[in-house]
Design a protein around this nucleic acid. Structure first.
Lengths: 232, 232
DNA sequence: ACCTGAACACCGTTCAAGT
DNA sequence: ACCTGAACACCGTTCAAGT
């Protein structure tokens, strides 16, 4: 090993925190959160699981770090949107829909956010910017506070969908027999499904346009806030 | 063993699905979801983990069953509230706040709901009743559909709180130094915290009245729906 | 300074064996 | 019919040992 040629095991970049976290994000983006175990993550980096502990404090630290990357992307995408001349409502809408676009690239992120026990720096930064927008729009701190609670996870671009199949899962197709059976027990549900389904191309439980529904709910809240701002 | 006296190992009730699920709910209510592993659950029933598989299909089936119990409680508490003469908005509000009360007794339930891949019978029943209320209130199926998406998890009585510490965790107390340090980086956040904190008794991150905030957000949405109903 | 192997204390689950 | 012990394939993590 006195030559300059590569040894048979190529490990020129000697692994560091950043590379570990980027690998974790890539892994989760591709195969879901289940693919991010210390062992599988190490394997994807060509190393043993125990080596990761030299660069990272443990599994929780990996998840924290993954979110830092995502929040970084969000803040980057969203800070450009606070251009002057627009109403607080437009700025807020753009910001939140911008955050949503980033989260759609990292579908695992909401589930990780929900399990954090500490608010991270970058998340605080995001909410500071949100709050700035409210205050600049004339909100009292009290109303701004209510507003942030009312938005909840919608501020970050996601909402709890209760009928959504898991990421990898396929949507449950419904044949005519199933629908008829359902109609007997849940007549209103069946009628609504029938009504909405006929507007779309196919008859599935996943018949909803997530983007449309997200914007409907968001606008409902923003309009509501606008009204309380006008007449407190 | 020909006598009628108890044998030394008392196992007169010979274990069944219902008892397993009830034990699981009790376990989770008391010690959190982490206490519901097949092994620990079995131990609390005085039995080996493998015995559970005689009454239950596996861990996922246990979680499904636990939710069935919770949804049963919700439906029971809530069905009494559809009394005639009240506006759809009042009925809906009472229903949802009723569901919320049940979920406050089972803090683990939202996290389980989020991980379900199939919509259960009792959950469908709940949403059927919600939908009935909308329809009886004059909603088109289209608007009712939007409304249910807009409510999201709020329909069941919970909303994604992003700054909430984990159930067992203690709230992060903030001393004057921390607040001052925070004020430098997040001035708006600090100002809002300061403003809201002075209304309450103590200076903590958990300074928010969850019930008040939940109702604020809920009313924002219900009022918004009312307006779209009046002028479509 | 970084990586590793063996080990520990947990998971959920299967399967053959007991009564 | 119900329960069990041993085993399998996974977790996250610690610790002493290697280079």
């Amino acid at each position: 090993m006195t030559t300059d040629t590569k040894p048979q095991t190529e490990q020129r970049t000697p692994l560091n925190r950043e590379r570990v976290l980027e690998a974790a994000v890539a892994q989760a983006d591709q195969g879901g959160l289940a693919e991010v175990s210390m062992r599988k993550l190490a394997q994807s980096l060509g190393v043993e699981a125990m080596s990761l502990y030299n660069h990272v404090d443990g599994k929780e630290d990996v998840l924290d770090g993954m979110l830092e990357i995502v929040m970084g992307e969000i803040n980057e995408a969203v800070d450009a949107m606070a251009s002057g001349g627009l109403s607080w409502k437009t700025i807020m809408r753009n910001r939140i829909l911008g955050a949503r676009e980033v989260l759609l690239r990292h579908k695992w992120a909401p589930r990780v956010i929900e399990t954090r026990t500490q608010v991270s720096q970058s998340m605080m930064g995001y909410f500071e910017a949100i709050l700035e927008t409210f205050v600049a729009g004339g909100f009292s701190y009290d109303l701004a506070h209510h507003a942030m609670h009312a938005l909840g996870s919608r501020a970050l671009g996601f909402s709890q969908e209760l009928f959504e199949p898991e990421d990898g899962e396929e949507e449950t197709e419904m044949d005519a027999a199933t629908i008829q059976q359902m109609a007997a027990i849940y007549p209103q549900m069946a009628a609504m499904l029938d009504n909405v389904a006929h507007e779309g191309p196919d008859t599935t439980i996943g018949w909803c346009d997530d983007q449309t529904e997200f914007e409907f709910g968001l606008d409902l809240i923003l309009d509501g806030l606008d009204r309380r701002l006008a007449s407190p």
